[in-house]
Design a protein around this nucleic acid. Sequence first.
DNA 1: CATAGTATGTACGCTAGCGCACAAAATACC
DNA 2: GGTATTTTGTGCGCTAGCGTACATACTATG
Lengths: 241, 241
Amino acid sequence: MPSSPPHQPDQNRLLAALPAIELERIKSHLELVHMPLGDVLCESGGRLPYVYFPTSTIISLHYILENGASSEIAGVGNEGLLGISLIMGGESTPSWATVQTAGYGYRLKASLLLQEFNRGGPIQRLLLRYTQALITQISQTAVCNRHHTIEQQLCRWLLLTLDRLNSQELVMTQELIASMLGVRREGITEAAGKLQQAEIIRYRRGHITVLDRAGLETHVCECYDVVKKEFDRLFRDVRKY
Amino acid sequence: MPSSPPHQPDQNRLLAALPAIELERIKSHLELVHMPLGDVLCESGGRLPYVYFPTSTIISLHYILENGASSEIAGVGNEGLLGISLIMGGESTPSWATVQTAGYGYRLKASLLLQEFNRGGPIQRLLLRYTQALITQISQTAVCNRHHTIEQQLCRWLLLTLDRLNSQELVMTQELIASMLGVRREGITEAAGKLQQAEIIRYRRGHITVLDRAGLETHVCECYDVVKKEFDRLFRDVRKY
DNA sequence: CATAGTATGTACGCTAGCGCACAAAATACC
DNA sequence: GGTATTTTGTGCGCTAGCGTACATACTATG
């Protein structure tokens, strides 16, 4: 058990940003659930019976191609919500959603969220605003995939993950990171080796400890900053609601 | 002048999908405008005073990195709308929007669209549904960038562009295509050369003619199909509105 | 504490795509 | 109709990342 209750809904930043009255209306329907590593919440083309507001878990949105290759297109942590496609009226997406870091999250019946969304108030504005941030993240991933080195992408991915976990350590094999980034495991071994030599991280069989966060930030590409700023902006704007 | 009036709003498939009453409300505010190649509609971080419903033009959403490299993340043709970020409440995006194929489109004051969107009726549902399709397109671009060859990507791009133009020919230099895909111009020369040898396309200084569309479809990666099906689904669903 | 299973390190040849340089062809413009 | 400009073709050598294979280390489990 990586982290344990007591949990509060406001450990998810979206829920925390809701006006008290709005939160009150859904609070009793929020169920705290533990989400084990590797759990598949939604397959390609499948429907999502629940939406999830992560508190300590991180969910990965990714594609699996016909030849078995895969790529993450975005992550969803305590800054977000899994289930945007539902709100968009899509019923399904071509992407998968799996638990990348075990932890907790609140789930809510999809129909209930939809109902709240359709009231058109602060919840709607907040979720749309989050959708915008998600689009930015996906777009930046697209560009990063094209133009940046594995090492840069690894740094981006580590930083984004650390931000979500609010921690210096993460439990994660190189194999798993590789499948997220859609590269070879050996590519990660090499990039991580360099970072370790530079004393930026320490790697021990499924555990990465960040020794020098500033160092990571000098090795990362601009993509991290763009995404981070977009999330910051989201929660800055959201105070107005 | 690549194509000329008389134009009708319903040449844009989103506008065409609107119930008559809804369309009536905005019709008088829709302005037909010609959009010349290369026109920059929105810079990174800039605001969009108008939204655009393309009829014969195609708009490219793309990023420009610090080192000057660029990549398209999605295209917007007569199936869509430029200005989703506005609806999402974002005020701006890190992406650029430029005219990739000259032509016509209808523009509408941003504030007016927002007002209509906030009524919450069919227009809202339609635009959200389109957002979903746009997200799919961006996601698929991300994955395609990672895993598929230039030739496959060129085919994808050509097919998507042809679908939007409803034509066998397009006016487009290799240099421009390269900057869309975020690859070298020489890479496009090579890939296009192969397709030409296979008698699938004919290339003549800025003009591509597709001789064998089925041939293109055998060379393309699965990404084209995913995006196309998503657009088809959008307009199938939309009839219910 | 021995062993099976899993995670990581390393090596090697291969290929796609890059960066650069320049030639050839097509078009626009005076 | 001749010249400048743009577009396309081609030929390097180079590098990042791939696929494969295998060795080494860690750790869980009995």
